[in-house]
Amino acid sequence: MSEKIAITVDDLTVAYNYKPVLWDIDLVIPEGVLMAIVGPNGAGKSTLIKSILDIIKPIAGSVKIFGKPYKKQYQHVAYVPQKGSVDWDFPTTALDVVMMGTYGSLGWIKRPGQKQKKAALEALEKVGMLEFKSRQISQLSGGQQQRIFLARALVQNSSIYLMDEPFQGVDATTEKAIINILKELRKAGKTVIVVHHDLQTVPEYFDWVTFLNVKKIATGPVKDIFNDDNLTKTYGINYKVSIQQ
């Protein structure tokens, strides 16, 4: 891991209708980590990711990507939204959705060509979805749709990947396939940040973790801070008992 900082979150506060969802978050994410964001429902995990991506405007604080605001750095960041955030009945194919990942590098008006198509096909192959490239997206299973989203992020060839619950509603095979790709990304020096729900798999999948519950509870290497103390602080009492079940 290099000493470079990928993302700096400074005094970030986000509120919906005057109710704080994120409160005074300070976060430094080093380059090259594979980090889980964990916390109970309503802890603001997705909001944190969306604030980093400038989709949600904070009422206070700032976010820097490699030392600069997001607007100047968007080409370095890829985003995998929650599967439920789009309408899967939209008339388009798997390949076309993956191609959308290339639109950022194209900019306005310019159209995707052979180069973009080739990149999209490669990304589809990487996630094991090449044979489904011409399928209409509503005809894909939940796990396949998640892989399409992952391929769309891969095609952006970014330095930072932000993923909102990529394992939600996918079967064990897909989960394995996705985590392998994430580990490959880390090996290639990319920074990967994942909103994650399954606490059991945190030590196995990730090397960095952030505990979040409106406020930041802790952030750091999994081996140092993934302990009962922080789990209890984040999820409330008796977490030790419930995680062992």
């Binding site: 968007y74 639109y103 950022g104 194209l106």
Partner: peptide
Amino acid sequence: KELKLSTFDKGLATTLGF
């Protein structure tokens, strides 16, 4: 391209700078 992207996935359109 822009119409299709922002109709299908507004979030992605935002993050890609559209």
